[in-house]
C-alpha cells in the first residue's frame, strides 16, 4: 500500500472535500447512500458486452461531481491508482474472446475488446460513485446514514471508532517509521525482523490505548452502549434527487438512448 503520510493525506483531502458546501453536500446522507446503491446496481445489471448501455449512466457521476464542485482530476487520479487488479484480470478478455462482435468502418472489433472496455467503464463508474459519496458526505455522516438505514449498530460504531483512531495510530506509526529511518540510513524499508518489532510495539501501544479509552468511556457513564443523538431530516431536495436519478436509471435501462442517437446521427 502507500506510505503512512500519503495515506493520511488521502483521508485529509477527502475530508476537506466533504466539509465543502453544495446542493449535493446538503442532501441527507441516507439519500446519497441509496442513490449510490441504486446506481451501482444499475451499472452491474448491464451485460458484459453492453458497452453502449453503460454510456448514459456516466451522467450521474459527471453531474454529481459538477454540482458538488469536486475536482475531477483528483477523482480520476485515485481511480488510476486503484486500477491494476482490474486491468490485470480484464486484459485477458481480448486474448481469450476473439469472436467478432462489431465491425466499425471495416475494422472488426472482437467481443473481448468490447467486454474489456466495458470492464474499464464499469470500474470508472462504480468507483467514482463511491468516491463521490464519501467526498460529498463525509465518513461520519455516511455512518449515521447507514445506522438510520438499519445497519447493525455495533458495526456502525466500530466504523466510527476505527476511523477516529486511524489518525492517532497512523500518527504513531509514522513517528516510529521516521525514527527507524533516522537510525537506518541505508535501507528505505525495514527488514522483516525490524518490521515485526515495529508492529509489535505499535500493537502493544494500541492495546494500552484501548484500555485508557475504555477508562475514559467509563468515567463518562459508559454502560456498554454508545448513544448518539442527532436529528436527521429528509427534505424536498432529497426526494427530488432520489426520484430524478432513479427515474433516469430506469429510463436508460428501458430505452436504448445511445442506439437511437447513433442512428439519428448516421442517418443524417
Amino acid at each position: 500500500m502507500k506510505g503512512v503520510e500519503s495515506g493520511l493525506l488521502d483521508f485529509s483531502r477527502l475530508e476537506m472535500l466533504a466539509a465543502g458546501d453544495s446542493p449535493v453536500h446538503r442532501l441527507d446522507p441516507r439519500t446519497k447512500v441509496l442513490v449510490t446503491a441504486a446506481f451501482l446496481v444499475f451499472v452491474v445489471l448491464h451485460g458484459k458486452y453492453d458497452l453502449a448501455g453503460l454510456a448514459p449512466l456516466a451522467l450521474y457521476p459527471v453531474a454529481a461531481m459538477a454540482l458538488s464542485g469536486l475536482p475531477a482530476g483528483y477523482i480520476l487520479g485515485k481511480l488510476l491508482l486503484a486500477s491494476p487488479f482490474v486491468l490485470l484480470v480484464g486484459v485477458w478478455n481480448p486474448v481469450l474472446d476473439r469472436g467478432i462482435l462489431v465491425t466499425v468502418g471495416g475494422l472488426p472489433i472482437s467481443g473481448g475488446w468490447i467486454s474489456f472496455a466495458s470492464i474499464v467503464v464499469r470500474f470508472a463508474l462504480t468507483l467514482s460513485a463511491a468516491l463521490i459519496l464519501i467526498a460529498t458526505t463525509g465518513f461520519d455522516q455516511v455512518c449515521r446514514g447507514l445506522s438510520r438505514l438499519y445497519a447493525p449498530k455495533a458495526f456502525v460504531l466500530q466504523l466510527l471508532l476505527l476511523y477516529r483512531y486511524i489518525f492517532v495510530l497512523a500518527g504513531e506509526a509514522a513517528r516510529m517509521v521516521r525514527a527507524f529511518r533516522l537510525r537506518n540510513l541505508s535501507d528505505e524499508r525495514p527488514a522483516m525482523r525490524t518490521y515485526a518489532a515495529l508492529l509489535g510495539s505499535l500493537l502493544v501501544r494500541a492495546l494500552d490505548r484501548a484500555q485508557r479509552i475504555h477508562m475514559a468511556m467509563l468515567s463518562r457513564g459508559f454502560d456498554g452502549e454508545i448513544r448518539m443523538s442527532r436529528p436527521m431530516r429528509l427534505r424536498l431536495a432529497d426526494a427530488a434527487w432520489a426520484a430524478f436519478w432513479i427515474a433516469f436509471f430506469i429510463l436508460v435501462r428501458r430505452y436504448d438512448i445511445p442506439g437511437l442517437l447513433g442512428q439519428i446521427v448516421i442517418a443524417h
Binding site: 453502449a52 445511445p258 447513433g262 442512428q263 446521427v265
Partner: peptide
C-alpha cells in the same frame, strides 16, 4: 447499426 450503437455511446 452496430456503428450506430458505438457512435451513439460516444455521443452520449
Amino acid at each position: 447499426t452496430s456503428v450506430a450503437g458505438l457512435v451513439g455511446a460516444a455521443l452520449t
